[in-house]
Simulated assay, not measured.
Amino acid sequence: MNIDFITRLRHILSHYALSPSLFADQIGVPRSSMSHLLSGRNKPSLDFVLKIIDKFPDVDLYWLLKGRGSFPSKMESNPSSPLTGDLSSIKSSVMDTKKIDRVIVFYEDGTFESYNPSK
């Protein structure tokens, strides 16, 4: 399992264009943990796997552990999810009922900026 897990983990890193260090930072694990996993020195803990699933909902648990299923997981199965619509429909439905407090932009290098339109 360990080698297949490593291959799938590398696929996740490639898909999100993250270095192992940035990925470790994103899921909240020490960078050395990523190094040890990718080298085959250590096996993934349940906590490590759950952190990946929590941070990256496109990662299917069974695909990550056993290679069954797909990655990224198919989000089309829930048509009522706002993630499947285009941005204009999301914007209009949100703007009709709520005021925007803050917008956060995340960059590929792991940094982010926060904008407060009402201030």
Rank of each mutant, 00 (worst) to 15 (best):
K99M: 14
R31K: 11
R102A: 15
L64W: 00
L50G: 02
P30E: 06
S32P: 06
L64H: 00
S45V: 04
S45H: 04
P57M: 04
S70Q: 11
Y115I: 15
P57Y: 05
S73L: 10
D60Y: 04
S21G: 08
E108I: 13
P20K: 08
K74Q: 10
N78K: 10
P20N: 05
G40N: 05
L83G: 06
D96R: 13
V103R: 13
R8M: 07
K98N: 14
L87A: 15
F71T: 00
H15L: 11
Y115K: 09
V105E: 04
V94W: 09
D60M: 06
P82W: 09
Y115A: 08
K91M: 09
T111E: 14
S33N: 10
D101T: 13
A24Q: 01
L22V: 02
S92Y: 13
P117H: 12
Q26N: 09
N78E: 12
P30G: 11
I27K: 00
H11K: 12
R31A: 07
I52G: 01
Q26H: 07
L37H: 00
L38G: 00
I104G: 10
D47F: 03
T111Y: 09
F23I: 04
S80C: 06
L38H: 01
M34R: 01
L37C: 01
S39F: 02
F23D: 00
D86G: 11
P72A: 03
K51I: 03
E108T: 15
G28P: 04
I12S: 08
S39N: 08
R8K: 07
L50E: 08
F48T: 04
D96A: 14
R8G: 06
V105C: 15
L83W: 04
K98A: 15
H36F: 06
S73T: 09
S35T: 10
V29P: 00
K91G: 06
K74A: 06
F106K: 14
K98S: 15
M75A: 12
D109R: 08
V105A: 14
N2T: 08
K119C: 12
S93G: 03
I12V: 13
R68G: 01
S114H: 12
L9F: 03
D109C: 10
G85W: 13
P57V: 04
S35R: 06
D47W: 02
R31F: 02
D96N: 13
P79Y: 03
G67K: 04
D86K: 13
I90K: 10
I6L: 07
F48N: 02
L37D: 00
S93Y: 03
S21N: 11
S70T: 07
R102Q: 15
K98H: 14
D96Q: 14
E108K: 12
P79A: 12
R68S: 05
F106I: 11
R8P: 05
P117G: 11
D47G: 02
F5Y: 10
S92R: 14
